[in-house]
């Protein structure tokens, strides 16, 4: 028994040690370098800064006429509308697809699930957005984000619907509710846990998305936080302190989200991927 305890203790220590080396040091590296002076940061080491330069952060914010502020605004608007759109359309579709198990729904479900695998056709999408006169607009970008994340969202809602008994809806139906009332008043409150999961997962995906804004939302006024990061890569190539300050500023929202919703995020990702 004593030997087993000692073995566990060693495993604990080794595990923490390896974790710190592999997973903590890169973040520590970002953090200390974001607080150094330019010369010190360019050495790229992990020593504690000889002098703390918190002004790096305000410098990054005011850089290029407060571009980062614009980017934050754009990213938040994009994330907000994408998430709102997804939780409405996804919940409605997931509900009916799960409940009506006929051939039409099966076909629709199969077609939508294709979206989990096959990649989007990028240039034809740009062409389509141009023809609809919504290229380089937030509306067009939101629509593309919703379309790309619809399959995953429907899958989560559909999976959760399977655990809700149908008796409630039938009773409400007999009491004279119309389909819309049944959904809003009976089903919608029951979807709260999965909705929270969907909100968090789609918000993280959209906020961290680099590729789609790169293609569908070009232009300095439309920039998102991930694009500023990419642009600063070139402009700050000799001032790593600014680059890391920018990285830290963009990572902080995710860190806050993670601290508050750790369990929900993990559970949601597991549920989403296993049922697929």
């Amino acid at each position: 028994m004593k030997r087993e305890k000692r073995r566990l203790l060693i495993a604990d220590i080794l595990g923490v040690l390896v974790t710190v080396i592999i997973f903590i040091i890169p973040f520590y590296f970002m953090f200390v370098n974001s607080l150094k002076s330019q010369q010190e940061a360019n050495l790229l080491n992990i020593a504690w800064p000889s002098e703390l330069h918190f002004e790096n952060y305000s410098a990054v914010f005011s850089y290029a006429n407060y571009q980062l502020l614009t980017a934050y605004k754009n990213s938040i608007i994009l994330t907000l509308f994408t998430v709102i759109g997804l939780i409405f359309t996804g919940a409605m579709a997931g509900y009916v697809i799960q409940r009506r198990n006929d051939r039409v729904m099966k076909t629709i479900s199969w077609v939508i699930m294709l979206g989990l695998m096959i990649p989007a056709a990028i240039l034809p999408t740009i062409n389509l957005l141009q023809k609809l006169h919504i290229y380089k607009t937030m509306f067009g970008m939101v629509m593309v984000e919703i379309a790309l994340q619809t399959p995953f969202t429907i899958m989560l809602f559909r999976g959760y619907m399977a655990s809700i008994p149908t008796e409630l809806e039938e009773a409400a139906r007999i009491d004279g509710c119309n389909p819309w009332q049944v959904f809003i008043q009976i089903i919608n409150p029951l979807l709260k846990p999965i909705r929270a999961t969907v909100i968090i997962l789609t918000a993280v995906t959209t906020f961290n998305d680099f590729t789609n804004p790169l293609y569908f939302l070009p232009g300095a006024d439309n920039t998102t936080v991930q694009l500023t990061l990419y642009n600063y890569k070139g402009q700050f190539s000799s001032s790593y302190n600014m680059l890391f300050a920018d990285i830290i500023l963009i990572t902080i929202p995710m860190l806050i989200l993670f601290i508050f919703f750790n369990k929900r995020i993990v559970d949601g990702m597991v549920a989403g991927s296993v049922k697929g």
């Binding site: 409605m92 939508i112 809806e169």
Partner: peptide, 11 residues
């Protein structure tokens, strides 16, 4: 009860 219209926005 499960109106087809619910799927239309997503689809």
């Amino acid at each position: 009860l499960y109106s087809f219209w619910f799927v239309v926005p997503s689809l």
